[in-house]
Every structure is written in structure tokens, then in C-alpha cells.
Design a binder for these strands. Sequence first.
DNA 1: CTTTTTATAGATCATGCGATCAACAATAGT
DNA 2: ACTATTGTTGATCGCATGATCTATAAAAAG
Lengths: 214, 214
Amino acid sequence: MDGRLESENAESESGTARRRLPPKERREQIVNEAVRFFAEVGLEGNTRQLAKRLGVTQSLLFNYFATKDELLEAVYEKVYLDRLSPDWPDRLTDRTVPLRARLLAFYTEYSGLIFERDWMRIFMSSGLAGAVLNRRYLMHLGDVILRPVLAETEALARGETRPTMEDIWNLHGGIVYIGIRTHIYGMPGPDDPETVIAQSIDKYLLYFGIGPED
Amino acid sequence: MDGRLESENAESESGTARRRLPPKERREQIVNEAVRFFAEVGLEGNTRQLAKRLGVTQSLLFNYFATKDELLEAVYEKVYLDRLSPDWPDRLTDRTVPLRARLLAFYTEYSGLIFERDWMRIFMSSGLAGAVLNRRYLMHLGDVILRPVLAETEALARGETRPTMEDIWNLHGGIVYIGIRTHIYGMPGPDDPETVIAQSIDKYLLYFGIGPED
DNA sequence: CTTTTTATAGATCATGCGATCAACAATAGT
DNA sequence: ACTATTGTTGATCGCATGATCTATAAAAAG
């Protein structure tokens, strides 16, 4: 009656006949797939679909995570963690290198990490849902990245107006918005993000009278 | 058994003892409340809660909208419509006024309209959900606002680099990001958005060698 | 006042989802 | 080869939600 072939995801497909994995491995596998899954369908995506993708039973998920929220927490952590490399604060404040070069290095690398469907959509979804991790991430970003950038700018600014945190947020927002446009709104993005990023930085620096070699 | 007092939202509260409204009025009332409701709780908010807020039965909603999706469509329209005043293209291209003044006028007015919890959250939610209206809105924005701004900038630009649409998106994104930061991520925003907006515009214009009186 | 119309309420259906639990089977230890 | 352990399944529960349908009562028509 039921026309479905249960066998395929169990045996025939690729010889992965429902193997029994060590908990650590299985948990990791689940989280990895969950990241992709929830990024696609949103945080309301159901556990049955996710389980199907993994080729396991839905009930198995609850063996590793007591509730769906707990699974989502794991997804957040996986997505957020190590997205902010710990050596950036140092690199951003290394005054042997021109500020422009430092900013460029940071934002090309950072955008390479976050201009990615999974990250962008999960970050936005969790932000809308009011996740605490979200605010924590942004506070952290403000502390270890934006505030140092402000300090570096202040040290070099020659114009009459002094830079504030809002200027840094503006620079940051203008760049991040590229990712929002493309991955949240599904609009076409720039052919070459690096050029756009470089120009954003140049506008920022020019406004405070900072040259490319300063 | 059921300890609830059904009477209060029907009679005692404010004498609004379940009045019988003309369809047009009721529909409008529903949509208005739905906008606020879905902005707060997200698009997955359930119809029973919404009905409770309105002080009507859940089933009544389905007398005005065949499905929940249909209601959401009405919410989108309500939120999107007339958010882009039709006279802006003209005002943005009025060369008797300095470009800086034009941009400032537009973005202070526009930000006043969109830096609002309801709009921001529904726009983002519907964007994540892949709503067609979303992309339509952005395409429209690109056509009637951003493209004219590009043309005006090109006409005045004195620098070596020519402006592109990406420059306009960058200006736009930097400003809109203020709203995203505050209303989606729930972070504290600038005390005075107007100042931040003015500086964004100044950075943009300075980069293309356009003075405040040009 | 009586009749007709229809906006609204209340009860209920169907289903999808998170979560639970007992039974099963793959692996490791002996 | 036998046993103990535990990762995994399959069936099922309880509940919330979108949607439907009929009875009611408020307003309009006569």
C-alpha cells in the first residue's frame, strides 16, 4: 500500500545500513545537518524532516537532545563559535601595518566567513526569535572588533569630526548588508564583494582624513 | 471548572459587547491588529492568540480570510503599501536643490517610516520566508529610488572612480542597518539617528568629490 | 412588529508536531 | 560463543493549530 521504499535510506543507497555510531560522532553529525536544515527552512522546520535527511529516526534526535530548543541551542553554538577568530583584535591593532590594510584584511576574511547562506539565515532567524546568543555575539563583536577599530581610527583621524562607535557600526552595517541582501532577501549581489568592501573602507577612512598608508 | 471569565472581553471591559461590524471595517481591524501581532511573535504566531487580542472568535478570522496565508498576504500589503511615497523620485532628481539636502530629506523621512518595530520585523520575517512581495519591494526601491540617486551622483561626481549601484546599496545598507540592529537584534541604537544618517551621506558624497552645496 | 439577512460564536474535525517508551540489534567485553 | 551494554527503531501519546460547519443573534428591510 505505502508505495515508499524504506530500504533505500537504510541499506541500498550507499551501504550505510543504519550503522551504530559512537554518541560523539552521531551528535556532531546531527548538529551539522541541523545547521543546514534550519538555515534552509527556518527554525520552525520539523524534526521529522531533519531526521529523514539524516537517514535516522525522528526519535533518535531526542536521544541526543532533550528538546528541540536544546538542539537549536547546539545549532547556534556550532554556527557562532569560532566565527570570530581570537587573533583579530591583535591584528587590527598592529600599527606597523596601515589601518586601511588592516581593515581590508579583516573584512575580506570576515565576509568570507559570514557571507554564507547557513550563517546569514540562522543568525537572522535567531535574532528575530530573540535568542540570547545573538546579542551576546554582537556585544562580543562590538568589544573585540569594533571598539578597537574605533581606537585605531581615533589615533589617526585628522578631520574635525571625531569618530564614534556609530561610525564603525555604519561601516560594518554597510558591508554586512551585502550578505543580508543576497542571502536573506535573495537579491543578486555584487560580482566582486572585495571591491565593494574596499570602497566602503575607503569612504570611511577618507571621511576621517586617513590616507591609505597611514 | 474552567476558571476563565469569558465575559470580560465580551461585555464588561469597555462596553464593546461583541458588536457586529460591517465587513469592511472588521477586515481592516483584523489586518491592523495582525500587523502588530505577527511583528511581535513572528509569522508562526497562531490565529487563536490573534483572535483573542481582537476580542473575537478564531473562526471569525477564517470568515474574512480563507487561509492563514491569505491573511499574511494582507498583512504584507498593508505594511508595504504606501511606504514608498510616489513623489520621492521627483524630489530626488530636483536639481535646484543640492544633492546632499535631497538625500538628507529622503533618508530622514524614509528612516522615520521604516525604523519601526512592526515594519522592520515583518519585512525581515517575510524576507526570510521568501515572500515574493519582499523582492518586489526591493526591486521597486532599486528602480524608483536607488537608480535615480545613482544618476544624480554620476552627474556631479568629480573623483576618478565612477559610482555604481553598489555604492548606492552601500549607502542604503549602512543606514538601514541601524534599524536592523535595533529592531531585529534588539541592540541599543544611536541617540540621534539623524546625525548618523547625515554622516553616512557625507561620507558617500565626499568619496565622489561632491560638496554640500553641489 | 415581523421577516430576512448575515456577521459572529461555539463546537468540532483533521492533522502535524514534539516528545515518550518499550523492544530490538549492533558492538564490545569476557 | 556468550553476555552485557547501549545506540537505534517503531509505535504511540498529547497537544496545539488551521480549518470547517451549524446554530445564534444583531442589524436591516418590509
